Computed example of a mutant assay.
Amino acid sequence: MTVLLVFLGAAVGAPMRYLTDRAVQSRHQSLFPWGTFTVNLIGCVLLGGLAGAGTALPAAVYSLLGTGFCGALTTYSTFSYETVRLVERRAYFVAAANVVVSIAAGVGAAAFAYEAVHALAG
């Protein structure tokens, strides 16, 4: 049953990542990969919130949303690839900003969501 929940979450998360990435990136005329940044930030908030809920949520919810949906929505490989491509284009500042901003915002968003949900579920 757990594998099915992961599969179902991923079946929604992967197309959501693609559609969100394309919609966001098409609105920006910069080298910065805003689409990937956005889906990764959304995933960090959601996963941080799920973790903050602790045992208040059933394990099945973590499998569906945490592993399945967030796992397919977020993309470390695309983040890495886009950073390498920026370096290849000699856009060093944008590449460094991508790394620093993505990691800082992702960790910050996850920590904030964790604390907020943990306080509510407490």
Rank of each mutant, 00 (worst) to 15 (best):
M1A: 13
M1D: 11
T2W: 08
T2A: 12
V3L: 14
L5K: 01
L5E: 03
V6S: 04
V6A: 11
F7P: 09
L8Q: 01
G9Q: 07
A10L: 07
A14R: 09
P15L: 05
P15H: 05
P15W: 06
M16Y: 01
M16L: 11
M16F: 12
R17N: 10
R17E: 10
R17V: 13
R17C: 13
Y18W: 12
L19W: 09
L19E: 02
D21Y: 03
D21M: 03
R22N: 11
R22H: 09
A23F: 15
A23W: 13
V24D: 02
V24I: 08
V24W: 04
Q25M: 05
R27K: 15
R27Y: 08
R27E: 09
Q29V: 02
Q29F: 03
Q29G: 15
S30V: 03
S30Y: 03
L31R: 15
F32K: 12
F32W: 14
W34M: 05
W34A: 08
G35S: 08
G35Y: 05
T36I: 09
T36Q: 04
T36A: 01
F37L: 10
F37H: 11
F37R: 06
F37E: 06
T38V: 14
V39I: 13
N40E: 02
C44V: 04
C44W: 00
L46Y: 01
L47N: 01
G48M: 04
G48Y: 04
G48E: 05
L50E: 00
L50D: 01
A51V: 05
T55I: 08
A56S: 06
A56N: 05
L57S: 01
L57Y: 05
Y62R: 02
Y62T: 00
Y62G: 11
S63Y: 08
L64N: 03
L64Y: 11
G66L: 00
G66R: 00
T67S: 01
T67Q: 01
T67R: 00
G68M: 04
G68H: 00
F69N: 06
C70H: 00
C70Q: 00
C70K: 04
G71E: 02
A72L: 12
T74I: 04
T74V: 09
T75S: 06
S77P: 05
T78V: 13
T78E: 07
F79Y: 12
F79V: 12
F79Q: 10
Y81L: 15
T83P: 11
T83R: 09
V84Y: 12
R85D: 14
R85G: 07
L86E: 04
R89H: 10
R90D: 09
R90Q: 09
R90M: 07
R90F: 01
R90S: 04
A91F: 12
F93C: 15
F93T: 15
F93L: 15
A95Y: 09
A96I: 13
A96C: 14
A96L: 15
A97T: 10
N98E: 05
V99M: 09
V99Y: 06
V99C: 08
V100M: 15
V101K: 02
S102M: 15
I103T: 11
A104H: 11
A104M: 10
A105E: 09
G106D: 05
V107Y: 13
V107R: 10
G108C: 14
A109L: 15
A109K: 06
A113R: 03
Y114A: 04
A116G: 00
A116K: 02
V117L: 05
H118G: 03
H118S: 10
H118A: 11
H118N: 04
A119V: 14
A121C: 15
G122H: 12
